[in-house]
């Protein structure tokens, strides 16, 4: 899965424009591992591989991160080793979810994902500040941003064109999510332009 590289939060190719797929890693990795354990007991390396497959390689984990998360889950009583006598950090050891863990997982699935308010979005802040300073100067920003977003969308769409929605569903779903966010951004940019134009006419 060589296409992982340009997408992870650590390797955002467009820089700080704010349209990369952001998550809150600490929360999500914990619950994701719990979700994988809910399917069947697994050992550490298996968890890492399955996690990367499910997120279509958008989110590489290192094994150390897996083990520290597992340790925290055990501490909170959400997961436990299948062989309590074995070495908890050993590669042979496999883990399973506890009842308490299933409850916590259920709560996580039920809870809607809280979205960042736009005010905290870097692009929004940039545009708002530019308008406050000088409405004229925002034009080029909008144009550049729109071009960049469209270019990015085209790139993602090319990935999607190559993907097989039957066999690579997670990957396609991730691409859909990214594309829809970008589309929302393009539409927002168009709306900003339209509103500025409408204000200019008055």
């Amino acid at each position: 899965m060589g296409r992982i590289a340009p997408l992870g939060p650590a390797a955002d190719p467009v820089g700080n424009t704010g349209y990369a797929y952001r998550a809150t890693p600490a929360m999500s990795v914990r619950h994701s591992l719990l979700a994988l354990l809910a399917e069947e007991p697994r050992h550490g390396y298996g968890l890492k591989a399955q996690f990367e497959r499910s997120t279509a390689g958008t989110w590489p984990l290192n094994v150390g991160q897996v083990y520290t998360t597992l340790a925290r889950l055990e501490r909170d009583g959400l997961a436990e080793p299948t062989d309590p006598d074995g070495d908890a950090s050993g590669a042979r050891q496999s883990w399973r979810i506890t009842d308490l863990g299933r409850e916590a997982l259920g709560r996580w699935f039920e809870e809607p994902v809280a979205l960042d308010p736009p005010a905290r979005d870097e692009l929004a802040i940039k545009v708002l500040l530019a308008i406050a300073a000088d409405a004229e100067s925002v034009g080029p920003i909008l144009v550049r941003q729109r071009a960049a977003a469209l270019e990015r969308m085209a790139e993602l769409t090319r990935h999607k064109a190559k993907a097989d929605p039957m066999r690579e569903l997670p990957w396609v779903l991730v691409l859909d999510a990214l594309l829809l966010k970008l589309e929302a951004e393009v539409r927002w940019l168009d709306l900003v332009a339209a509103r500025l134009a409408a204000r200019g006419q008055r």
């Binding site: 977003a149 969308m153 085209a154 993602l156 064109a161 829809l180 589309e183 393009v186 539409r187």
Partner: peptide, 13 residues
């Protein structure tokens, strides 16, 4: 629709 335009080789505005 930008998502549909993204299937094109070029997008003109």
């Amino acid at each position: 629709d930008a998502r549909h335009a993204a299937w094109a080789d070029r997008v003109l505005h």
